[in-house]
Amino acid sequence: MGPAARSGTDLKRVRGLGAAHAGVHHWWAQRVTAAANLLLGIWLVASLLWLPDFSRAAVVAWVGQPWVAVPLALLVGSATWHMRLGVQVMLEDYVRDEGLRRLLLILLDFYAVGVAAVGLFAVLKIAFGAADA
């Protein structure tokens, strides 16, 4: 890129934060969690097909295995993180009022962290043998 095509100062370019002052971290994290969701999602689909039935005993026996609990916990984390990033973009696109937008972003954080906490707690409780079924 020639000097004429550059915008902003050299310092601004080297910081790489762009017009949103946040850089590409959000965009990149959305894509990294997408790749994780793709792999873990395919695994979940295969697992749901392989489960003999959806009784509590079958589910607890399934989640109780280390090689199920770990990817399932990772999926809960990756999916809620990806969801948090995606819904944020939607709110920033469509909610014009700044006060309302900030309030909804806080509620989104509560929802994302809440869902992740519940899901992870449940997986770990079953995995550590504390759910007697």
């Binding site: 989640v63 809960v76 999916a79 899901g119 707690f121 997986v123 079953i126 504390a130 759910a131 079924a133």
Partner: peptide
């Protein structure tokens, strides 16, 4: 998903 897992754990 969270409801399913927490119900199984409870």
């Amino acid at each position: 998903l969270a409801w399913w897992l927490i119900a199984a754990a409870t």
